[in-house]
């Protein structure tokens, strides 16, 4: 960092410029470098050694002598249909989970916005509060509810709705439920922020002018809240694609999600180059939605007063 003699606020910022070097170096070392290493290993050959991959750069006496890369790990990913299926399955699980989350979150955000200010605060707080409690433990809590002899089955049997317990745990249903439950606040908050800015009087005017309530909602409210819908959906979708904890605890053996496969590839198969290639492809898959989200956020910030 240069010293700040040039401009922007004079000497007061000089020490800030110096101080920021520290977190800057920290991020270069502990965020950027690791990612470059993963990229590097994804092009390396697996070997039986510690660490179990070949060196990528070869250093001779004259210094750098060559770059040793192999595309085999990537070729393996694409030829072996297994990974293609898992990526698609993860996108599908995350996509359906996101839609379910929207179907529940939208009415909730819509309801909260229409409450008087004081009640609005309390309802919003109630949405956020669970977030401060351990994610792992909240996902765990569902095991006790969804079990064959769990609370929900016991209840349904006792009131005579069913004779035999429903299989609700260790399958895709449980994973969808876990996604909706865990990410619901991420859906509600941007929707709420968006709906709050809308002129609700406009909607009431539409209703007064003879539009039926449902029609006014579909024709006026929904189109106006599209930025909130996209924001909320991306906030749920992006982390859901790489989710590990939910499929690991609630999913069945046949629930294929990339986060879990990556974990197994690393901890069980110990194939680090393939695990790295799987990671790089996952990041590439997420680049588009992430950029979309950032663009959306920038536009929202410009639109905000």
């Amino acid at each position: 960092m240069s010293d700040g003699t040039t401009n922007d606020g004079g000497h007061s910022l000089r020490w800030l410029r110096r101080m920021v070097t520290l977190p800057y170096l920290w991020l270069l070392l502990f965020f950027l470098a690791p990612f470059l290493i993963i990229l590097k290993i994804s092009f390396a050959d697996p070997i039986v050694a510690q660490p179990p991959f070949t060196a990528l750069l070869e250093w001779g006496e004259q210094g750098f002598t060559g770059l040793k890369t192999t595309f085999e790990n990537y070729a393996f990913l694409f030829q072996d249909g297994y990974y293609g299926i898992i990526y698609l399955a993860s996108l599908k699980m995350a996509g359906i989970g996101t839609l379910l989350c929207l179907m529940l979150g939208y009415p909730m955000a819509y309801f909260i916005v229409r409450q008087p200010p004081r009640r609005r605060q309390i309802l919003l707080l109630a949405v956020i509060l669970p977030f401060w409690i351990s994610f792992l433990l909240r996902v765990y809590a569902w095991i006790g509810l969804l079990n064959n002899r769990g609370l929900i089955n016991n209840f349904l049997i006792s009131i005579g709705v069913i004779d035999h317990p429903l299989t609700m745990l260790y399958n895709d249903f449980a994973v969808y439920l876990g996604i909706v439950y865990s990410y619901l606040p991420f859906m509600i908050m941007p929707l709420y922020a968006n709906l709050e800015r809308l002129d609700l009087d406009l909607l009431d005017a539409a209703a007064d002018l003879g539009a039926r309530r449902w029609q006014a909602f579909v024709d006026v409210t929904v189109p106006l809240s599209v930025p909130g819908i996209i924001g909320g959906c991306l906030l749920v979708f992006i982390p859901a694609v790489g989710e590990f904890t939910i499929p690991a605890l609630l999913g069945g053996a046949d629930t294929l999600m990339i986060g879990r496969v990556l974990w197994d590839e690393f901890f069980i198969n110990r194939d680090w180059p393939v695990a790295s290639a799987v990671s790089v492809v996952l990041v590439l898959l997420l680049v588009a939605p992430i950029l979309w989200f950032q663009r959306l956020q920038r536009r929202e910030q410009e639109a905000a007063p």
Binding site: L13, P34, I38, L262
Partner: peptide, 28 residues
């Protein structure tokens, strides 16, 4: 700081962990 050197890189590196799948952060 208006003219921060490498501002783009810094703001990129500081927002990326928010969206990076945990499993990749851990592995890397």
């Amino acid at each position: 700081v208006n003219r921060l050197r490498g501002r783009l890189l810094l703001s990129g590196m500081i927002t990326a962990p928010l969206v990076m799948p945990e499993i990749i952060t851990g592995l890397s």
